[in-house]
Design a protein around this nucleic acid. Structure first.
Length: 597
RNA sequence: CGGGGCGUAGCUCAGCUUGGUAGAGCGCUCGGUUUGGGACCGAGAGGCCGCAGGUUCGAAUCCUGUCGCCCCGACCA
């Protein structure tokens, strides 16, 4: 039985909904696939559900193909498992919490690592039961501070999450690879461009982590890639570290007057004007060492200052800083922080001063504490043997030719500098370019963090208890639907890829003649017999313009128009993706449809 | 949480400056004319003007408060 537009529960909107900004949100609402229920929460209408289920079917197919098994956990979970792993606390305001009538705490699950781990612990206890991959397709809940962009960042969203269980590292590698391969097949079948990038393993404590990003300007992740094949989320980018250089031939550091130079730009100007380089080249911001004071707030609320030294032509990327200092919160130091450390002369901060080390240690082989005692971390580019212009901790003075490793030392290296196009990839594969992407999948070696915390162990071949090692693999189902819509539309409407389109073909009758309508019925019947899933626009009193507009909006990629030439046995085949509109004899319609790209 | 904007019909919006019977287009219902790109004529249904106070003879309009929503940022799959 075909689906008739006259009966389908859908109402298309002629105008864009005022609260929708991005294309996917606008079009999915206008075309009647979804309706907003609350901020970041959406109801699914028949058309939307059909597409969703097609996406889910492809995901299931590829996971089952390598032996993963589907389970389903509730969205409503008790507090206890999350208490054990401390995530009840770590999630902070990020999750929906509620109490039952007895006052017991529950949450709407943001992710399910704990309960998967506990389920396997309940039932399995031998290495013979492993490896095991389980997955579910379930709604997740996050109390986003600001949901946005429709389905792309909601507070309720559907995710496929898988977990693998192994008792050896090699086993985990294999399970990880199985998922990674399956994800490649899934995204290919979905017709979605993707880039696999190195991701930050973060506070989860995992060893290997990669993200599948769909390149799109509305993406919220920035990633880099080189022509030679390096690809990484900008948060996981590592700077190519220069070789240490010898101190031979380097002149001693020299303190010079640099009045009115609170900014790097002013400093470069003054340096070139008053203290030009002996070799004639002009000073640039890259010759300066900028020392930025950050305040870290740990989970327990304690506040610590840290100074980061980076080349003056770089900024600190706060996202990279959050990752580098996780789980602490990072912000710029405020006036109060400076007041507590008079040794730091604002605008003229540096690791060294005429009276000794302010940050880090003073001399090679003299690990004496600096006068401030503040942790001092360096960008990797500030490597041993490089010389810098940097603050002398005296108002109006900078020190020139201060050499890393000779005149000052850090308490460590840190990756917080902004990444810019042209930076060298760390694997030597050439300069990187930057692009935006939306995360559509994530594969992640969790290792033993959850198994340790929750006590998931099995007996190995030798009868010894070993802790299970886990992987976690996610795909955002509803996000993928939105991303597909985002990348498959032409402004007039959606254009679904064949594999996820709600119908194979959209048949519209254009014309007043009841005979034409009857021909339309015949065509629909025969297409259905040939196995096509057909959406039939049988609305009798709707003008052709409206039908064409709705056909474009709804986004079924192949449209058949039964109209003026129907009596002669000819219909029009309209391929939305190519834009081609061709006349086709009815008897050849099935073959012509099957042959469409 | 910081910044900006907006709450009037199912949708998109006008009206508010300068207080005086609640508006348009689209959509919906009925009748008729149309029928290959969002047609037309006629007749209708549909509003606690976000909510609560206040000022006033009278408030969608002015004042105070409050709630909600959207966008940018922070945060996040």
């Amino acid at each position: 039985m075909s689906t008739r537009l006259s009966q389908l529960f859908v109402r298309t909107l002629r105008e864009d909904p005022v609260d929708a900004e991005v294309a996917s949100h606008r079009l999915l609402v206008r075309a009647g696939y979804i309706r907003r229920q609350a901020p970041g929460v959406f109801a699914w209408l028949p058309l939307g559900l059909k597409v969703r289920r097609k996406i889910e079917a492809i995901i299931r197919d590829e996971l089952e193909a390598f032996g993963a098994q589907e389970v389903l956990f509730p969205g409503l979970l008790p507090r206890e498992p999350y208490e054990v792993t401390n995530r009840w606390t770590e999630y902070g305001d990020g999750i929906f919490r509620l109490k039952d009538r007895k006052g017991a705490d529950y949450l709407l699950a943001p992710t399910h690592e704990e309960v998967f781990t506990l389920l396997v612990k309940d039932l399995y206890s031998s290495y013979k039961d492993l490896p095991l991959s389980l997955y579910q397709i379930q709604d997740k809940y996050r109390d986003e501070a600001r949901p946005r962009a429709g389905l792309l960042r909601g507070r309720e969203f559907t995710m496929k999450d898988s977990y693998s269980f192994d008792y050896t590292d090699a086993g985990l590698d294999a399970s990880y690879q199985q998922h990674r391969d399956a994800y490649e097949r899934i995204f290919t079948r979905l017709g979605l461009d993707y880039v696999i990038v190195k991701a930050d393993a973060g506070a989860m404590g995992g060893s290997r982590s990669e993200e599948f990003l769909h390149p799109t300007p509305v993406g919220e992740d920035t990633f880099v890639r080189s022509a030679g094949g390096y690809a990484a989320n900008v948060e996981a980018f590592t700077t190519a570290v220069p070789e240490p250089r010898s101190f031979d031939g380097l002149t001693p550091a020299e303190v010079l007057d640099t009045p009115d130079t609170p900014t790097i730009a002013a400093l470069v100007d003054v340096a070139n004007g008053k203290h030009p380089r002996p070799d004639g080249r002009a000073w640039t911001a890259a010759d300066t060492l900028k020392n930025i004071v950050l305040a870290l707030t740990a989970l327990d609320g304690t506040r610590e200052l840290v100074v980061v030294g980076i080349p003056g032509d770089r900024d600190i990327d706060l996202k990279r800083a959050e990752v580098a200092f996780a789980p602490a919160d990072v912000e710029a130091a405020n006036e109060g922080d400076f007041a507590k450390h008079p040794g730091l002369v604002k605008g003229y901060i540096g690791p060294w001063s005429p009276s000794g080390a302010v940050l880090g240690a003073a001399q090679t082989g003299e690990p004496a504490r600096s006068t401030t005692g503040i942790r001092f971390l360096l960008d990797p580019r500030v490597s041993e043997g490089t010389g810098w212009i940097t603050g002398a901790n005296v108002h109006g003075q900078h020190v020139f030719g201060l050499v890393a490793g000779r005149d000052f030392h850090s308490d460590g290296i840190i990756e917080v500098g902004s990444v810019v196009a042209g930076d060298p990839a760390p694997d030597g594969s050439g300069p990187v370019e930057l692009a935006r992407g939306m995360e559509i999948g994530h594969v992640f070696q969790l290792g033993r963090k959850y198994a340790d915390a929750l006590g998931l162990k099995v007996l190995d071949e030798n009868g010894k208890l070993v802790t299970v090692t886990m992987g976690s693999y996610g795909i955002g189902v509803t996000r993928i639907l939105a991303v597909i819509a985002e990348s498959n539309n032409d402004g007039k409407g959606l254009i679904w890829p064949k594999n996820v389109a709600p119908f194979d073909v959209h048949v519209a009758v254009a014309g007043k003649d009841v005979a034409v309508m009857a021909i339309g019925e015949t065509i629909v019947d025969s297409l259905e017999e040939s196995g096509f899933d057909v959406l039939f626009d049988d609305r009798p009193k709707v003008s052709p313009g409206v039908k064409f507009g709705d056909a474009e909006l709804l986004g079924v990629p192949l449209i058949v128009i039964v109209g003026r030439d129907a009596a002669e046995g000819t219909v029009e085949l309209w391929n939305r993706r190519t834009g081609d509109r061709t006349s086709v004899a009815m008897i050849e319609l099935g073959a012509a449809l099957a042959a469409q790209p």
